[in-house]
Amino acid sequence: MSQAETATGGLAPHSPTRPARAVWTLGLFRSELAVTFRRWRTLALLAVLAAVPVLVGIAVKIETGDGGSIGGGEGGPAFLSQVTGNGLFLVFTALAATLPFFLPMTVGVIAGDAVAGEAGAGTLRYLLVAPAGRTRLLLAKFSAVLAFCLAATATVAVFALATGALLFPTGQVTLLSGTSVSFGEGLLRAAAIAVTVALSLVGLAALGLFISTLTNSGVAAMAATVGLLITVQILGAIPQLDEIHPFLFTHYWLSFADLLRDPVYWDDLLKNLGLQALYAAVFGSAAWARFGARDITV
């Protein structure tokens, strides 16, 4: 195990036993996770995400405090008008409000920084000295970014749930189709929605990781990823381009609402997952190709 791989030997054959390999991969993933989540930047991003549902909840409470109601269903994020009836809907409102921009932006920052940040700081080559190999290092990085996707979504959902439960009544949940289900099933559906939202971000995470392998500047990679996100969002809003819309990774993002129908409408949800898997495969393998063949000079 002491035999160290050189930076040039990404896929060079080496023969530690299988369990040792697994331990190495796990250890690598754990250290990546620690690196990601111990950063002040990550914690700040999560704090911003946590603040959104709290602020929305307080704003709705103040506006409806004197018996008034949130005007109609139009304007504002989806599900906002249902929040006063059931605090659980704050979870859906918060996710619908953060999904177009806040959530993917944080993912773009983390994913863009994953490789380029290390390269910029000059720590990448030390990582490559470890006998883990480039592919496994990349996998560990990608897993850490995915873990962040889940953590970011969970942060929004949990803070929204806490705020919603504190400020508004809970109880039977009215689904979009007009049927009522128990609060327990509502919670279950909320959890499924949080996971779906996290999975919706996988495509962007892979894209960010790929961009991250292209440059040595973490800031450039983050800016490029977030810029790409904005571009795609703009393209998605232009009706004349509806031919390409189904191929944009943002296109089916709001399909998470389909989990609130009775029965669940799977078509768009599955299309979303398929599209995210496709983006992950294309840009994940592109990142692998680029990272494995890349000259690490800093």
Partner: peptide, 27 residues
């Protein structure tokens, strides 16, 4: 029949002599 909107749904239910409509966005 349910009209599936992006984050809402409009349902029209006919059962015997009852005709119900429900709009989720406006509850």
């Amino acid at each position: 029949v349910s009209v599936l909107e992006s984050t809402g749904e409009y349902s029209l239910i006919h059962n015997g002599r009852q005709l119900w409509a429900y709009d989720s966005a406006a509850n």
